[in-house]
Amino acid sequence: MTSRETVRALLTAQHPDLAHLELREVDGGWDNKLWRLGDELGVRVPVSERAPGLLRAEQRWLPELAARLPLPTPVPVRVGEPSALFDRTWTVTRWVHGEPADRVPISTADSAEALAGFLTALHRPAPPDAPRSPTRGVPLADLRDGFTEALTVLDDDRIAGAAREVWDKAVAAAPWSGAPVWLHGDLHPANVVVRAGRLAGVVDFGDLSVGDPATDLAAAWVLLPEAGPFLDRYTFADDATVARSRGWAVLRALILIAIGRDGRLGLPGGKPTWEPAGHAALSRALA
């Protein structure tokens, strides 16, 4: 794990005008360790094998996308290059103020409008060289085996049967026929922040990719207390897209439960706030 001393040394070597700012370790993160730098900046340092590639995608695309997004995002403002001190890229970003929604859930009705505006602005056709993912933006049928495995985290056969029914309807729904659109790819409670109960920012664009917008529309159930107001406001919510979105929401909820329960499905654990967030999302998606 990268130490405070190492991060300070990296800043001194590559961005000395920022090196004097207070540096505080932040609890959280998945592929990257997060540090707060002063009041308005953050430092993201890779800890997983895939993290450098994800950071490069953020460095390349997020500044361009953020210009049209109506919610704050952790836009890269400086790039750290591999060096003798640290052999991977790293990033200095804009800090997004608020508390993660896995700790302080979204509770205000106007958050539905905020999320709908954000995703409507994001979900525009992407260029041919935009990043693609094998697990985001793809037909749900491609993830059938993963869903069956994820379903094993549920101990209640009745709930598992209801989840399977929603999933089967999602797989059977008409596929996305439009151009691949930009996706956040990983909208769950730990990747958005809340202020006074309202959605106040979206973070961690490491899974930025393109494809079916239903991947992101799962957030209607995963993040919000009620999906209906969001679906009334989002531009492209036809019946088939809503059906696919509910399937994505069920899958995302099961993964949150697995990670929160000390790790299941071959995933690391250590995120105890994710299990209750996953159960809440699953209840909403099955309602």
Results as ranks from 00 to 15, higher is better:
235 T>Q: 15
239 D>K: 15
217 L>I: 05
262 D>V: 04
225 P>W: 07
269 G>I: 12
267 L>V: 06
257 I>K: 03
212 D>K: 11
259 I>M: 14
206 G>D: 08
238 D>L: 04
219 A>Q: 07
262 D>Y: 14
248 W>D: 00
280 A>E: 14
213 P>V: 07
211 G>H: 09
220 A>M: 05
279 H>T: 08
249 A>D: 00
235 T>L: 15
249 A>V: 12
242 V>R: 09
265 L>Q: 09
227 A>V: 10
216 D>C: 10
230 F>T: 10
223 L>V: 06
203 V>H: 00
239 D>M: 13
218 A>D: 05
262 D>S: 14
261 R>H: 15
229 P>D: 10
235 T>F: 15
225 P>D: 08
243 A>N: 05
270 G>F: 13
227 A>I: 12
222 V>K: 02
241 T>N: 02
211 G>D: 09
277 A>G: 01
263 G>Q: 06
246 R>N: 00
232 D>A: 15
271 K>Y: 15
256 L>T: 02
233 R>D: 00
258 A>D: 01
273 T>A: 15
213 P>A: 03
214 A>G: 07
217 L>R: 00
254 L>Y: 04
254 L>V: 08
247 G>S: 12
273 T>S: 14
225 P>R: 10
237 A>K: 12
248 W>A: 11
262 D>C: 04
222 V>A: 00
272 P>Y: 08
273 T>M: 11
218 A>N: 01
243 A>H: 12
210 V>G: 03
211 G>V: 13
210 V>D: 06
270 G>A: 00
209 S>W: 10
